[in-house]
């Protein structure tokens, strides 16, 4: 599964890790994140991410 990078702050979303503190279990591909998911580090919206 591909990693995605936040254009604003450089945070990398790794599907293998997910985003557990917001209920996103490991193994969740970026495409499957809810539309209102945002960067855990800076809050940028999902569409500010690009594939690494």
């Amino acid at each position: 599964m591909e990693k995605w990078e936040c254009m604003v702050c450089g945070y990398i979303y790794d599907p293998a890790k997910g985003d557990p503190s917001r209920g996103i279990p490991p193994g969740t591909p970026f495409e499957a994140l809810p539309e209102d998911w945002s960067c855990p580090d800076c809050g940028a919206t999902k569409d500010m991410f690009e594939k690494v």
């Binding site: 604003v8 702050c9 945002s38 960067c39 800076c42 809050g43 940028a44 919206t45 500010m48």
Partner: peptide, 8 residues
């Protein structure tokens, strides 16, 4: 003064 507000 926060990123999500700037984007929106």
């Amino acid at each position: 003064g926060i990123v999500p507000a700037a984007i929106e």
